[in-house]
Design a protein around this nucleic acid. Structure first.
Length: 513
RNA sequence: GCGAAAGUAGCUCAAUUGGUAGAGCUCCAGCCUUCCAAGCUGGAGGUUGCGGGUUCGAGACCCGUCUUUCGCUCCA
């Protein structure tokens, strides 16, 4: 398509709405920012993607089992995971440069500058004196002490301000320290605001007794807190995995790009528990396995790439993303992280419960290491929909809009048409629908010319159209028209079920893995 | 959150310097009976995102607000 990426993305969005894939939430009330609903076709596609992932992960791996943990979790969970601290960033804007900074980072950078001065003093002194003892110098030199006192004072004040949630004082610290914006060089700051990326609500009907609880910002913790339950009751032996799909919620400051970054979204995660020291092997294994899964959708190998994280999160010793080429460029689709034993250790510490595994081969206990695969279902949906949407120019200059969805994921597997709405053709067509509908989601349409109906199903992404004509009454065969090639072939009615099964079932897709 | 652009029927878009809100497609009911969106007849669908202001008169101008896309920012 000779469209600008931006225009193509708008086309994806309008197509999604026009054909019932995605609607904006609460649209009649002007919508809710960055929240979307899945329509009648969208819910089918989403369900099929989820099913394909689930079967590929759980059904095809005897050492992976499923879980469905609640969205609400004990508040301490989020202290242990680090989300309470990490998701509470005090932010401040410079009014002149319009740049936003984390207030704590600005203050820490200021402290770092003072520390540099100390280092320089030490270096100077080291050159001047023989037998220089840095430790003695640090504790005795007046200038160094002055610097150090300054640092301690700032730290103490900042810590108090944060603990008391005293954002005015955080701003005052920045003003008192005469911190300037690196871009504009000005001290024209806004107030400090706290952005809590976790949604909270209260549990219990009596408000005084109400406990603040959070809507989970990730599904992983539900797996970690249940890891021992599953291991014991499922008699799981390491290495083993726990898979889960479900909603997570993040109060993003900026949530945009259609369903790419939503405030409410669905994750599909698998946490794989391994013996410490073997995690890199498994990390490589899952990198390959997950990329392979994406490639099986046949949307084009050039649309995927790995992006290795150079800066690792506090919990990880290796991490990468599988990125997909969205209409707005390569962006993260799935993350594969080697999370070490960080999460389980944290939960051991905060809960006081042992979360260890007894390894019969080693005859010893240990906290397993975890390799995580985490994919956004909504992002996957968007990657498939935007890769599948095509505006084709046919011979003769005609254009058609077609969704080349992987057949196994398409909302409708086939559509059945009577060529004309008389002569008993609708009755025969309906009897075919009746027969197929137990195994496949089938559409029926008898309105408008058959060509128009074909194009309508192309826009839906239906891989096959089955047309009943007068010959069908004679010899019990029908025309099957292929979505992608538009080629037609004649098939016996009693062979339809097998024909579809081979081409549109999840089984056919799973076998390619 | 800052900046830019935009918001008119289900979709894509019109509407002279401010002067009666329209078209195509879609949809619905019928006619026609045709294997790739194109025939005929009729019909439905709108307080122009919302609220206020200027004006004799606002879809258009001004202010506010909501939503979307883009850039910056953020993304444990």
């Amino acid at each position: 398509m000779s469209q600008k990426p931006e225009d193509f993305f708008k086309h994806v969005i309008s197509h999604s709405k026009e054909y019932g894939y995605i609607f904006q939430s609460s649209e009649i009330y002007d919508g809710l920012s960055a929240v979307y609903d899945y329509g009648q076709l969208g819910v089918e596609l989403k369900k099929n993607i989820r099913d394909y992932w689930w079967k590929a992960m759980v059904q095809l791996h005897e050492n992976i089992v499923g879980l469905d943990a609640a969205i609400f979790m004990h508040p301490t969970t989020w202290k242990a995971s680090g989300h309470v601290d990490a998701f509470n960033d005090p932010l401040i804007d410079n009014k002149d440069s319009k740049k936003r900074y984390r207030a704590d980072v600005l203050i820490e950078e200021h402290i770092a500058k003072i520390e540099d001065k100390i280092t320089k003093e030490v270096e100077k002194a080291a050159k001047r004196f023989e037998n220089f003892d840095a430790a003695v110098f640090l504790s005795t030199n007046a200038r160094v002490k002055e610097y150090q006192d300054k640092i301690d004072a700032i730290n103490a004040r900042f810590k108090t301000a944060l603990n008391d949630n005293n954002l005015e004082d955080v701003k005052q610290i920045i003003i008192d320290l005469e911190i300037v914006c690196p871009i504009s060089g000005s001290r024209n700051w806004t107030d400090v605001r706290q952005f809590n990326l976790m949604f909270s609500t209260s549990m219990g009907s009596v408000s005084e007794d109400a406990n603040t609880i959070y809507l989970r910002p990730e599904t992983a913790q539900g797996i970690f807190v249940n890891y021992l339950n599953v291991q014991k009751t499922g008699r799981m032996k390491i290495p083993f995995g726990i898979a889960q799909t479900g909603k997570a919620f993040r109060n993003e400051i900026v949530a945009r790009q259609f369903i790419f970054r939503m405030r409410e979204f669905e994750q599909m995660e698998m946490q794989f528990f391994v013996k410490p020291g073997t995690e890199m092997e498994w990390y490589e294994y899952w990198k390959k396995a997950r990329l392979n899964w994406h490639l099986s959708l046949d949307l084009g190998a050039d649309k995927y790439r790995f992006h290795d994280h150079l800066k690792l999160a506090h919990y990880a010793n290796a991490a990468c993303d599988i990125e997909h080429n969205f209409p707005f460029g390569f962006k993260e689709l799935e993350g594969i992280h080697s999370r070490t034993d960080f999460d389980l250790k944290q939960h051991e510490q905060f809960s006081g419960k042992k979360l260890q595994y007894f390894d019969p081969e080693l005859n010893q206990n240990y906290v397993p290491y975890v390799v995580e695969t985490s994919v956004g279902l909504d992002r996957l949906f968007l990657s498939i929909l935007s890769s599948a949407l095509k505006e084709e120019t046919l011979e003769g200059g005609d254009t058609r809009t077609v969704l080349n969805l992987p057949p196994a994921l398409a909302p409708y597997k086939a559509a059945v048409f009577p060529l004309v709405k008389k002569d008993g053709l609708p009755e025969l067509a309906e009897s075919i629908v009746k027969d197929l509908k137990f195994d496949f989601n089938i559409a029926y349409d008898e309105k408008d010319t058959v060509g128009k109906r074909y194009r309508r199903q192309d826009a839906y992404g239906t891989p096959f159209c089955i047309t009943v004509d007068h010959q069908s009454l004679e010899d019990k065969t029908v025309t099957v028209r292929h979505r992608d090639t538009m080629i037609q072939e004649r098939i016996a009615i009693d062979k339809l079920s097998t024909f579809l099964e081979e081409r549109v079932s999840l089984k056919s897709l799973l076998k390619t893995l």
